[in-house]
Amino acid sequence: MSFVYGAQNAWDMLSDEQSQKHITTGSGDLNHILGGGIHCKEVTEIGGVPGVGKTQLGIQLAINVQIPVEYGGLGGKAVYIDTEGSFMVERVYQIAEGCISDILEHFPHSHDKSSSGQKQLQPEHFLADIYYFRICSYTEQIAAINYLEKFLGEHKDVRIVIIDSVTFHFRQDFDDLALRTRVLSGLSLKLMKIAKAYNLAVVLLNQVTTKFTEGSFQLALALGDSWSHSCTNRLILYWNGNDRYAHLDKSPSLPVASAPYAVTGKGVRDAVSPNHKRVRVA
């Protein structure tokens, strides 16, 4: 009954989707508006003003994707493409420790388990399973994304690719905006293809810009109208007074919604306890 080779019907896709695990963000409220966490096979764009926690969330996801299967995680590895140089490895170590202490809190009996399970739960182990690429120009960025397909073919246990940020080099050095649009839309299709083919989540961090609409300047994500179509889901992080909020702005399957979250010493968590709040430096 196939009209086209390789095409799947919606029923089979539904059962595939239902068996998928999602990557937790560390915050239950955030997971809730995202339908359980960051989804594999989709491209999720996360945008927000500087300092709101984009990179923190990026690092958190690179750690959380590694939570072993027996503790409810995906047990995968992460690719982190850093274009801005904001990947602070000491912080990654802290977040890994925070993640491990939360796992041990939720699974108090895991101490009884064999030493091999315990060996996995070391921050060093989490750090070793992040493949980090430092990108210093847009040429390198294009090359890295083109190389990813081969790299992922050789590292099938990678379940998340994070690009922090997709914007930086494309905002600085490009004069020909029409060319930029073409290059970016080509890159976005490649990332879509990778997400689908290797069953992994692609997370793109994006900066904000001001946009003149209806007589006033408003904050919008960078790279223009054309780029805004290049993701499956879009999450916007923003300040509401002194609280951090996330707003799900685009999703094919979930309603638009907002939720508060916090960035603590251990990483991204629910915004419950007031002592987790950081006073915003204006």
Binding site: A10, W11, L14, E17, M192, P252
Partner: peptide, 18 residues
């Protein structure tokens, strides 16, 4: 009849369809 859906942005959501 049958529907053929060509998706370019991984946004065909079977759970939404259901």
């Amino acid at each position: 009849g049958v529907v053929m859906y060509l998706d370019t942005s991984n946004s065909f959501s079977p759970s939404r369809v259901a």
